[in-house]
Amino acid sequence: MTAALYAEWTKLRTVAGPFWLVALAAVLTTALSAAAAGAVTCAGAGCGVDAPMVALTGVQLGQAVVAVLAVMVVGDEYRTGMIRTTLAATPSRAVLLGAKSVVVAGATLAAAVPGVLGAWLAGRLIMPGRGFTAAHGYAPLSLTDGGTLRAFAGAALYLTLVALLSLGIAAAVRDAPTGVGVVLGVLYLAPILVAVVSDPDWERRLRQIMPSDAGSAILHTIDLPALPIGPWPGLGVLALWSAGALLLGGLLLRLRDA
């Protein structure tokens, strides 16, 4: 396992693409968060805006870059034929996918942690000027506050789970563009479905089972009882999707020839 890990890490760091994608994910997460923080205003006390969640809007964009990063870890090997060398060196498909998961999770965290910290900093600096003041019931965003810490740490975990979901799907479809299409289709489908389904029972059920909607419950800090699913159970649903995708990808990797 150590050797496989080392091999995967070498493959990741010796091409330029992943480095730029990690940087891009961090920058875009921070940038969209800063833009959202600058756009949302709080007119008065009780405006009911979830400030940490606004400051984490960039996750919606960051997840697309993270998905590309994770999909390319598998897709590029199939594109170049490298996968046959890899499998010759590491015949155990499970060990290989495990090593790839660890490396992808590490690379994603390397993007998510600075991205989320940047979002926090943007929110802390910009939002007080947009009406999120003590007079309106908002303290500056602080990571020592339990709910805020959960949202920001949860955002990094959310991105990591999205990366693992993407990795599993990429192993199943074996083609990078198709993999990205499938992942983004699954992630962005939920908000569109929720917008057109007006039956409250349907909507609630959709929000409980769709990976992006359930997973982003972790980003909420207010009105938690009104959410269709709690923050941690929601992240758990996303984790189940990731585990399921990895299982499917691993199974297909084992059953098919490279």
């Binding site: 919606q60 870059v65 999909v71 993999g179 990205v180 962005y188 929720v194």
Partner: peptide, 25 residues
């Protein structure tokens, strides 16, 4: 391919989601 697909989806779908799902004011 991967980056191009992501760019297209992010350019077309994400702005719609952020606007229509009422994330942005």
């Amino acid at each position: 391919g991967a980056g191009a697909v992501a760019a297209v989806v992010v350019l077309i779908t994400l702005p719609y989601i952020l606007s229509a799902a009422a994330v942005l004011p």
